[in-house]
Write a protein that binds this DNA or RNA. Structure first.
Lengths: 212, 212
DNA sequence: TTTTTTCTCCGTCTTAAGACTGAGTATTTT
DNA sequence: AAAATACTCAGTCTTAAGACGGAGAAAAAA
Protein backbone atom coordinates (compact mmCIF):
# COMPACT_ATOMS: atom_id res chain seq x y z
CA UNK A 1 0.00 0.00 0.00
CA UNK A 2 1.27 3.41 -0.95
CA UNK A 3 0.57 5.90 1.79
CA UNK A 4 -0.64 9.22 0.35
CA UNK A 5 -1.51 12.67 1.72
CA UNK A 6 -3.59 15.07 -0.38
CA UNK A 7 -3.17 18.83 0.03
CA UNK A 8 -5.59 21.16 -1.78
CA UNK A 9 -7.56 24.12 -0.50
CA UNK A 10 -10.49 23.36 -2.79
CA UNK A 11 -12.50 20.93 -0.77
CA UNK A 12 -14.39 19.72 -3.80
CA UNK A 13 -11.23 18.89 -5.64
CA UNK A 14 -9.61 17.35 -2.60
CA UNK A 15 -12.57 15.17 -1.68
CA UNK A 16 -12.93 14.23 -5.31
CA UNK A 17 -9.36 13.11 -5.72
CA UNK A 18 -9.54 11.16 -2.49
CA UNK A 19 -12.78 9.51 -3.51
CA UNK A 20 -11.16 8.46 -6.75
CA UNK A 21 -7.91 7.28 -5.17
CA UNK A 22 -9.82 5.14 -2.71
CA UNK A 23 -11.06 3.03 -5.58
CA UNK A 24 -7.45 1.97 -6.11
CA UNK A 25 -6.45 -0.89 -3.85
CA UNK A 26 -2.74 -0.07 -4.02
CA UNK A 27 -3.26 3.39 -2.64
CA UNK A 28 -4.08 4.37 0.91
CA UNK A 29 -5.01 7.98 1.59
CA UNK A 30 -3.82 8.53 5.14
CA UNK A 31 -4.46 12.25 5.44
CA UNK A 32 -5.63 15.43 3.84
CA UNK A 33 -5.03 19.14 4.37
CA UNK A 34 -6.56 22.34 3.06
CA UNK A 35 -3.53 24.60 3.26
CA UNK A 36 0.19 24.49 2.66
CA UNK A 37 1.18 24.93 6.29
CA UNK A 38 -1.32 22.41 7.53
CA UNK A 39 -0.16 20.05 4.82
CA UNK A 40 3.52 20.36 5.69
CA UNK A 41 2.83 19.70 9.36
CA UNK A 42 0.65 16.73 8.54
CA UNK A 43 3.19 15.23 6.18
CA UNK A 44 6.04 15.55 8.66
CA UNK A 45 3.84 13.93 11.27
CA UNK A 46 2.39 11.10 9.21
CA UNK A 47 5.39 10.45 6.95
CA UNK A 48 3.51 9.31 3.85
CA UNK A 49 5.25 7.88 0.80
CA UNK A 50 3.74 10.38 -1.59
CA UNK A 51 2.15 13.82 -1.29
CA UNK A 52 -0.27 15.20 -3.83
CA UNK A 53 0.12 18.96 -3.56
CA UNK A 54 -1.88 21.74 -5.18
CA UNK A 55 0.27 24.65 -6.24
CA UNK A 56 -2.01 27.63 -5.89
CA UNK A 57 -3.51 27.87 -2.45
CA UNK A 58 -4.78 30.74 -0.37
CA UNK A 59 -2.86 30.18 2.85
CA UNK A 60 0.76 29.60 1.91
CA UNK A 61 1.63 28.25 -1.49
CA UNK A 62 2.39 24.68 -2.37
CA UNK A 63 5.95 25.72 -3.05
CA UNK A 64 6.60 26.85 0.49
CA UNK A 65 4.98 23.71 1.83
CA UNK A 66 7.14 21.60 -0.45
CA UNK A 67 10.24 23.38 0.79
CA UNK A 68 9.25 22.73 4.40
CA UNK A 69 8.59 19.08 3.68
CA UNK A 70 11.89 18.53 1.85
CA UNK A 71 13.74 20.09 4.73
CA UNK A 72 12.36 17.81 7.40
CA UNK A 73 11.53 14.72 5.39
CA UNK A 74 13.50 14.72 2.15
CA UNK A 75 12.73 11.17 1.10
CA UNK A 76 9.10 12.12 0.56
CA UNK A 77 7.89 12.31 -3.02
CA UNK A 78 5.89 15.47 -3.61
CA UNK A 79 3.74 15.48 -6.72
CA UNK A 80 2.66 18.94 -7.74
CA UNK A 81 -0.85 19.02 -9.15
CA UNK A 82 -1.62 22.24 -10.88
CA UNK A 83 -4.11 23.91 -13.14
CA UNK A 84 -2.94 25.39 -16.42
CA UNK A 85 -2.57 28.89 -15.06
CA UNK A 86 0.59 28.38 -13.11
CA UNK A 87 3.14 27.86 -15.86
CA UNK A 88 5.56 30.30 -14.31
CA UNK A 89 5.58 28.31 -11.11
CA UNK A 90 7.16 25.22 -12.59
CA UNK A 91 10.76 26.19 -11.96
CA UNK A 92 10.29 27.35 -8.38
CA UNK A 93 8.45 24.10 -7.73
CA UNK A 94 11.36 22.13 -9.14
CA UNK A 95 13.80 24.08 -7.02
CA UNK A 96 11.69 23.48 -3.94
CA UNK A 97 12.17 19.78 -4.48
CA UNK A 98 8.96 18.67 -6.17
CA UNK A 99 9.22 15.18 -7.58
CA UNK A 100 6.64 15.19 -10.33
CA UNK A 101 4.56 17.85 -11.96
CA UNK A 102 1.06 17.01 -13.15
CA UNK A 103 -1.58 19.19 -14.73
CA UNK A 104 -5.16 18.96 -13.55
CA UNK A 105 -6.07 18.28 -17.14
CA UNK A 106 -4.46 14.89 -16.61
CA UNK A 107 -6.84 11.99 -16.54
CA UNK A 108 -7.70 10.52 -13.16
CA UNK A 109 -5.81 7.36 -14.03
CA UNK A 110 -2.74 9.45 -14.84
CA UNK A 111 -2.71 10.55 -11.25
CA UNK A 112 -2.80 7.12 -9.73
CA UNK A 113 -0.15 6.09 -12.24
CA UNK A 114 2.01 9.04 -11.23
CA UNK A 115 1.60 8.12 -7.58
CA UNK A 116 2.66 4.54 -8.21
CA UNK A 117 5.62 5.65 -10.26
CA UNK A 118 6.65 8.16 -7.63
CA UNK A 119 6.51 5.45 -4.98
CA UNK A 120 8.93 3.47 -7.12
CA UNK A 121 11.16 6.49 -7.50
CA UNK A 122 10.19 7.23 -11.10
CA UNK A 123 9.80 10.79 -12.12
CA UNK A 124 6.76 11.89 -14.11
CA UNK A 125 6.51 15.13 -15.99
CA UNK A 126 3.70 16.15 -18.31
CA UNK A 127 4.79 16.41 -21.95
CA UNK A 128 3.40 19.95 -22.12
CA UNK A 129 5.27 20.86 -18.98
CA UNK A 130 8.45 19.19 -20.20
CA UNK A 131 8.24 21.35 -23.29
CA UNK A 132 8.20 24.47 -21.18
CA UNK A 133 11.07 23.22 -19.11
CA UNK A 134 13.38 22.79 -22.04
CA UNK A 135 12.21 25.46 -24.47
CA UNK A 136 11.79 28.11 -21.85
CA UNK A 137 14.90 27.53 -19.84
CA UNK A 138 16.60 30.84 -20.12
CA UNK A 139 18.52 31.12 -16.93
CA UNK A 140 16.04 32.34 -14.39
CA UNK A 141 14.38 34.86 -16.65
CA UNK A 142 11.04 33.65 -15.41
CA UNK A 143 11.69 35.15 -12.00
CA UNK A 144 13.59 38.29 -12.86
CA UNK A 145 11.73 40.21 -10.23
CA UNK A 146 13.44 38.24 -7.51
CA UNK A 147 16.49 40.42 -7.95
CA UNK A 148 14.40 43.42 -7.01
CA UNK A 149 14.73 44.97 -3.58
CA UNK A 150 11.67 45.31 -1.36
CA UNK A 151 11.26 48.94 -2.21
CA UNK A 152 11.62 48.28 -5.90
CA UNK A 153 9.00 45.57 -5.72
CA UNK A 154 6.66 48.01 -4.00
CA UNK A 155 7.19 50.51 -6.78
CA UNK A 156 6.77 47.83 -9.42
CA UNK A 157 3.41 46.80 -8.01
CA UNK A 158 2.30 50.44 -8.14
CA UNK A 159 3.33 50.54 -11.78
CA UNK A 160 1.36 47.37 -12.33
CA UNK A 161 -1.58 49.20 -10.89
CA UNK A 162 -1.22 51.95 -13.47
CA UNK A 163 0.10 54.66 -11.15
CA UNK A 164 2.25 57.58 -12.32
CA UNK A 165 5.56 58.50 -10.69
CA UNK A 166 3.86 61.36 -8.87
CA UNK A 167 1.16 59.10 -7.50
CA UNK A 168 3.75 56.57 -6.38
CA UNK A 169 5.82 59.25 -4.64
CA UNK A 170 2.72 60.45 -2.80
CA UNK A 171 1.75 56.97 -1.76
CA UNK A 172 5.19 55.94 -0.53
CA UNK A 173 6.08 59.37 0.94
CA UNK A 174 9.27 59.71 -1.06
CA UNK A 175 10.45 62.23 -3.66
CA UNK A 176 9.55 61.84 -7.28
CA UNK A 177 13.23 61.71 -8.11
CA UNK A 178 13.59 58.72 -5.87
CA UNK A 179 10.71 57.04 -7.63
CA UNK A 180 12.40 57.70 -10.96
CA UNK A 181 15.57 56.10 -9.67
CA UNK A 182 13.67 53.05 -8.55
CA UNK A 183 11.81 52.86 -11.84
CA UNK A 184 15.03 53.01 -13.84
CA UNK A 185 16.53 50.25 -11.73
CA UNK A 186 13.39 48.16 -12.09
CA UNK A 187 13.32 48.51 -15.87
CA UNK A 188 16.96 47.47 -16.04
CA UNK A 189 16.45 44.46 -13.80
CA UNK A 190 13.33 43.29 -15.60
CA UNK A 191 15.01 43.93 -18.95
CA UNK A 192 12.13 45.98 -20.28
CA UNK A 193 12.09 49.38 -21.94
CA UNK A 194 9.33 51.32 -20.22
CA UNK A 195 6.79 51.27 -17.41
CA UNK A 196 4.08 49.89 -19.65
CA UNK A 197 6.12 46.78 -20.30
CA UNK A 198 6.83 46.60 -16.60
CA UNK A 199 3.09 46.70 -15.92
CA UNK A 200 2.60 43.92 -18.45
CA UNK A 201 5.30 41.95 -16.66
CA UNK A 202 3.45 42.35 -13.38
CA UNK A 203 0.27 40.95 -14.84
CA UNK A 204 1.83 38.15 -16.84
CA UNK A 205 3.60 36.99 -13.72
CA UNK A 206 0.54 37.58 -11.59
CA UNK A 207 2.45 39.60 -9.00
CA UNK A 208 -0.63 41.54 -7.94
CA UNK A 209 -2.56 39.90 -5.18
CA UNK A 210 -5.83 41.75 -5.27
CA UNK A 211 -6.96 41.81 -8.83
CA UNK A 212 -10.20 43.70 -8.36
CA UNK B 1 -33.79 12.07 -7.73
CA UNK B 2 -32.21 15.16 -9.15
CA UNK B 3 -30.69 14.46 -12.53
CA UNK B 4 -27.30 16.13 -12.91
CA UNK B 5 -24.71 16.55 -15.67
CA UNK B 6 -21.14 17.57 -14.80
CA UNK B 7 -19.04 19.53 -17.30
CA UNK B 8 -15.35 20.12 -16.54
CA UNK B 9 -12.29 19.63 -18.68
CA UNK B 10 -10.18 18.56 -15.73
CA UNK B 11 -10.86 14.88 -15.53
CA UNK B 12 -9.59 14.69 -11.98
CA UNK B 13 -11.95 17.38 -10.81
CA UNK B 14 -14.85 15.99 -12.79
CA UNK B 15 -14.41 12.42 -11.61
CA UNK B 16 -13.93 13.70 -8.11
CA UNK B 17 -17.10 15.72 -8.03
CA UNK B 18 -19.03 12.84 -9.51
CA UNK B 19 -17.57 10.41 -7.00
CA UNK B 20 -18.66 12.73 -4.23
CA UNK B 21 -22.12 13.40 -5.62
CA UNK B 22 -22.78 9.69 -5.97
CA UNK B 23 -22.61 9.40 -2.21
CA UNK B 24 -25.76 11.53 -2.08
CA UNK B 25 -28.91 9.50 -2.58
CA UNK B 26 -30.95 12.44 -3.81
CA UNK B 27 -28.60 13.10 -6.69
CA UNK B 28 -28.23 11.09 -9.85
CA UNK B 29 -25.33 11.93 -12.15
CA UNK B 30 -26.63 11.02 -15.59
CA UNK B 31 -23.79 12.34 -17.68
CA UNK B 32 -20.46 14.09 -17.88
CA UNK B 33 -18.53 16.06 -20.47
CA UNK B 34 -15.03 17.41 -20.80
CA UNK B 35 -15.71 20.46 -22.95
CA UNK B 36 -18.29 23.19 -23.33
CA UNK B 37 -19.54 22.05 -26.71
CA UNK B 38 -19.72 18.43 -25.71
CA UNK B 39 -21.50 19.49 -22.53
CA UNK B 40 -24.10 21.59 -24.31
CA UNK B 41 -24.91 18.77 -26.71
CA UNK B 42 -25.16 16.27 -23.90
CA UNK B 43 -27.40 18.50 -21.82
CA UNK B 44 -29.79 19.16 -24.66
CA UNK B 45 -29.93 15.43 -25.32
CA UNK B 46 -30.29 14.19 -21.76
CA UNK B 47 -32.32 17.08 -20.35
CA UNK B 48 -31.00 16.99 -16.78
CA UNK B 49 -32.48 19.08 -13.98
CA UNK B 50 -29.17 20.69 -13.09
CA UNK B 51 -25.84 21.21 -14.82
CA UNK B 52 -22.59 21.74 -12.94
CA UNK B 53 -20.44 23.75 -15.33
CA UNK B 54 -16.79 24.74 -15.05
CA UNK B 55 -16.14 28.23 -16.34
CA UNK B 56 -12.62 28.04 -17.68
CA UNK B 57 -12.22 25.28 -20.20
CA UNK B 58 -9.91 24.76 -23.13
CA UNK B 59 -12.41 23.98 -25.87
CA UNK B 60 -15.12 26.60 -25.68
CA UNK B 61 -15.83 28.34 -22.42
CA UNK B 62 -18.55 27.50 -19.96
CA UNK B 63 -20.23 30.75 -20.88
CA UNK B 64 -20.75 29.78 -24.49
CA UNK B 65 -22.00 26.38 -23.43
CA UNK B 66 -24.41 27.99 -20.99
CA UNK B 67 -25.71 30.25 -23.73
CA UNK B 68 -26.28 27.28 -26.00
CA UNK B 69 -28.08 25.39 -23.27
CA UNK B 70 -30.34 28.29 -22.32
CA UNK B 71 -31.29 28.72 -25.94
CA UNK B 72 -32.48 25.16 -26.47
CA UNK B 73 -33.47 24.16 -22.95
CA UNK B 74 -34.10 27.27 -20.87
CA UNK B 75 -35.67 25.53 -17.88
CA UNK B 76 -32.34 23.92 -17.08
CA UNK B 77 -30.49 25.20 -14.02
CA UNK B 78 -26.85 25.81 -14.79
CA UNK B 79 -24.58 26.12 -11.78
CA UNK B 80 -21.27 27.73 -12.60
CA UNK B 81 -18.40 26.24 -10.65
CA UNK B 82 -15.29 28.32 -10.85
CA UNK B 83 -11.89 28.82 -9.33
CA UNK B 84 -11.01 32.15 -7.80
CA UNK B 85 -9.27 33.48 -10.89
CA UNK B 86 -12.31 34.20 -12.97
CA UNK B 87 -13.84 37.12 -11.14
CA UNK B 88 -14.29 39.11 -14.30
CA UNK B 89 -16.37 36.33 -15.78
CA UNK B 90 -19.20 36.60 -13.31
CA UNK B 91 -21.25 39.12 -15.24
CA UNK B 92 -20.95 37.40 -18.61
CA UNK B 93 -21.97 34.18 -16.88
CA UNK B 94 -25.03 35.86 -15.40
CA UNK B 95 -25.98 37.28 -18.76
CA UNK B 96 -25.59 33.89 -20.37
CA UNK B 97 -28.26 32.61 -18.01
CA UNK B 98 -26.31 30.87 -15.27
CA UNK B 99 -28.48 30.04 -12.29
CA UNK B 100 -25.97 29.87 -9.46
CA UNK B 101 -22.35 30.76 -9.10
CA UNK B 102 -20.14 28.69 -6.82
CA UNK B 103 -16.46 28.92 -6.09
CA UNK B 104 -14.34 25.80 -6.05
CA UNK B 105 -13.29 26.81 -2.59
CA UNK B 106 -16.79 25.86 -1.53
CA UNK B 107 -17.04 22.76 0.58
CA UNK B 108 -18.21 19.60 -1.08
CA UNK B 109 -21.45 19.71 0.86
CA UNK B 110 -22.04 23.26 -0.38
CA UNK B 111 -22.17 21.86 -3.86
CA UNK B 112 -24.76 19.20 -3.16
CA UNK B 113 -26.75 21.82 -1.26
CA UNK B 114 -26.55 24.18 -4.22
CA UNK B 115 -27.73 21.43 -6.53
CA UNK B 116 -30.72 20.67 -4.32
CA UNK B 117 -31.60 24.33 -4.04
CA UNK B 118 -31.27 24.82 -7.77
CA UNK B 119 -33.61 21.88 -8.35
CA UNK B 120 -36.14 23.65 -6.14
CA UNK B 121 -35.62 26.87 -8.05
CA UNK B 122 -33.58 28.58 -5.36
CA UNK B 123 -30.71 30.72 -6.41
CA UNK B 124 -27.36 30.39 -4.67
CA UNK B 125 -24.57 32.92 -4.88
CA UNK B 126 -21.38 32.87 -2.86
CA UNK B 127 -21.14 35.73 -0.38
CA UNK B 128 -17.78 36.74 -1.83
CA UNK B 129 -19.25 36.68 -5.29
CA UNK B 130 -22.36 38.53 -4.21
CA UNK B 131 -20.12 41.26 -2.86
CA UNK B 132 -18.51 41.68 -6.24
CA UNK B 133 -21.86 41.72 -7.94
CA UNK B 134 -23.21 44.60 -5.93
CA UNK B 135 -20.13 46.64 -5.15
CA UNK B 136 -18.75 46.36 -8.64
CA UNK B 137 -21.94 46.94 -10.55
CA UNK B 138 -21.14 50.15 -12.28
CA UNK B 139 -23.21 50.10 -15.43
CA UNK B 140 -21.28 47.93 -17.80
CA UNK B 141 -17.90 49.36 -16.96
CA UNK B 142 -16.51 45.87 -17.04
CA UNK B 143 -16.92 45.85 -20.80
CA UNK B 144 -15.92 49.35 -21.72
CA UNK B 145 -13.80 48.08 -24.53
CA UNK B 146 -16.88 47.03 -26.43
CA UNK B 147 -17.31 50.61 -27.56
CA UNK B 148 -13.95 50.43 -29.29
CA UNK B 149 -13.73 50.08 -33.05
CA UNK B 150 -11.87 47.14 -34.55
CA UNK B 151 -8.82 49.21 -35.25
CA UNK B 152 -8.81 50.67 -31.78
CA UNK B 153 -9.04 47.21 -30.29
CA UNK B 154 -6.06 46.16 -32.38
CA UNK B 155 -4.08 49.09 -31.08
CA UNK B 156 -5.20 48.41 -27.53
CA UNK B 157 -3.96 44.85 -27.70
CA UNK B 158 -0.60 46.13 -28.89
CA UNK B 159 -0.49 48.46 -25.92
CA UNK B 160 -1.35 45.52 -23.70
CA UNK B 161 1.66 43.82 -25.17
CA UNK B 162 3.89 46.70 -24.13
CA UNK B 163 4.49 48.17 -27.58
CA UNK B 164 5.37 51.81 -28.20
CA UNK B 165 3.49 53.99 -30.66
CA UNK B 166 6.32 53.60 -33.15
CA UNK B 167 6.24 49.82 -32.89
CA UNK B 168 2.50 49.82 -33.33
CA UNK B 169 2.69 52.04 -36.40
CA UNK B 170 5.26 49.70 -37.93
CA UNK B 171 3.20 46.64 -37.18
CA UNK B 172 -0.06 48.02 -38.52
CA UNK B 173 1.52 49.91 -41.43
CA UNK B 174 0.03 53.24 -40.43
CA UNK B 175 1.55 56.57 -39.42
CA UNK B 176 2.58 57.26 -35.88
CA UNK B 177 0.20 60.20 -35.81
CA UNK B 178 -2.62 57.84 -36.60
CA UNK B 179 -1.57 55.60 -33.78
CA UNK B 180 -1.58 58.58 -31.45
CA UNK B 181 -5.09 59.44 -32.52
CA UNK B 182 -6.24 55.90 -31.84
CA UNK B 183 -4.49 55.86 -28.50
CA UNK B 184 -6.15 59.10 -27.42
CA UNK B 185 -9.55 57.76 -28.41
CA UNK B 186 -8.88 54.49 -26.60
CA UNK B 187 -7.85 56.23 -23.39
CA UNK B 188 -11.00 58.34 -23.49
CA UNK B 189 -13.25 55.34 -24.11
CA UNK B 190 -11.65 53.22 -21.42
CA UNK B 191 -11.69 56.18 -19.04
CA UNK B 192 -8.00 55.82 -18.18
CA UNK B 193 -5.22 58.38 -18.14
CA UNK B 194 -2.31 56.76 -19.95
CA UNK B 195 -1.19 53.73 -21.92
CA UNK B 196 0.08 51.96 -18.83
CA UNK B 197 -3.39 51.97 -17.33
CA UNK B 198 -4.72 50.81 -20.67
CA UNK B 199 -2.26 47.90 -20.58
CA UNK B 200 -3.43 47.08 -17.07
CA UNK B 201 -7.01 47.16 -18.34
CA UNK B 202 -6.13 44.67 -21.05
CA UNK B 203 -4.70 42.23 -18.56
CA UNK B 204 -7.35 42.64 -15.91
CA UNK B 205 -9.99 41.93 -18.51
CA UNK B 206 -7.93 39.16 -20.04
CA UNK B 207 -8.24 40.55 -23.55
CA UNK B 208 -5.00 38.97 -24.71
CA UNK B 209 -5.43 35.51 -26.08
CA UNK B 210 -1.90 34.19 -26.07
CA UNK B 211 -0.47 34.87 -22.67
CA UNK B 212 2.82 33.16 -23.18
C1' DT C 1 -28.81 61.10 -51.23
C1' DT C 2 -27.41 62.72 -47.02
C1' DT C 3 -25.41 61.62 -42.68
C1' DT C 4 -22.60 59.11 -39.64
C1' DT C 5 -18.82 56.23 -38.63
C1' DT C 6 -14.28 54.73 -39.30
C1' DC C 7 -9.68 55.21 -40.54
C1' DT C 8 -6.28 57.99 -41.95
C1' DC C 9 -2.99 62.02 -41.16
C1' DC C 10 -1.09 66.97 -40.05
C1' DG C 11 0.73 70.64 -36.78
C1' DT C 12 1.44 72.51 -32.24
C1' DC C 13 2.23 72.31 -27.54
C1' DT C 14 2.96 70.59 -22.79
C1' DT C 15 4.59 67.43 -19.74
C1' DA C 16 5.73 62.90 -17.81
C1' DA C 17 9.24 59.47 -18.56
C1' DG C 18 13.54 57.83 -18.51
C1' DA C 19 18.81 57.91 -19.10
C1' DC C 20 22.95 59.33 -16.97
C1' DT C 21 25.91 61.03 -13.38
C1' DG C 22 26.75 61.92 -8.74
C1' DA C 23 26.12 61.67 -3.81
C1' DG C 24 24.77 61.32 1.35
C1' DT C 25 23.17 58.08 4.99
C1' DA C 26 22.19 53.83 7.23
C1' DT C 27 22.38 48.98 7.57
C1' DT C 28 24.42 44.67 6.77
C1' DT C 29 28.19 41.78 5.42
C1' DT C 30 32.80 40.52 5.43
C1' DA D 1 37.37 48.45 10.17
C1' DA D 2 36.16 48.13 5.45
C1' DA D 3 33.04 46.99 1.77
C1' DA D 4 28.76 46.16 -0.19
C1' DT D 5 23.80 47.04 -0.39
C1' DA D 6 19.68 49.67 0.02
C1' DC D 7 17.24 53.92 0.08
C1' DT D 8 17.16 58.50 -0.50
C1' DC D 9 17.59 62.79 -3.55
C1' DA D 10 19.65 66.37 -7.11
C1' DG D 11 20.61 68.21 -11.78
C1' DT D 12 20.49 67.86 -16.69
C1' DC D 13 18.93 66.33 -20.97
C1' DT D 14 16.32 63.86 -24.59
C1' DT D 15 12.35 62.04 -26.27
C1' DA D 16 7.95 59.55 -26.27
C1' DA D 17 3.33 60.53 -24.86
C1' DG D 18 -0.74 62.69 -24.99
C1' DA D 19 -4.07 66.76 -25.53
C1' DC D 20 -6.30 69.66 -28.85
C1' DG D 21 -7.96 71.16 -33.16
C1' DG D 22 -8.57 70.33 -37.93
C1' DA D 23 -9.34 67.54 -42.11
C1' DG D 24 -9.82 64.27 -46.22
C1' DA D 25 -11.52 59.69 -48.03
C1' DA D 26 -14.18 55.64 -47.95
C1' DA D 27 -17.80 52.89 -46.34
C1' DA D 28 -21.96 51.99 -43.93
C1' DA D 29 -26.29 53.54 -42.23
C1' DA D 30 -30.23 56.60 -42.41
Amino acid sequence: MIRVVVVDDHEVVRKGIIAYLQTDMEIDVIGEASSGNEGATLVIEKQPDVVLMDLMMDNGSGIEATEQIMEKYPSCKVIILTSYYDDEQIFPAMEAGAFSYLLKTSSASDISRAIKKAAKGENVIEPTVAGKVFSGYRKGSEQLHESLTNRELEVLLCIGDGMTNKEISDKLYIGIKTVKTHVSNILAKLQVNDRTQAAVYVHKNKLLKEEE
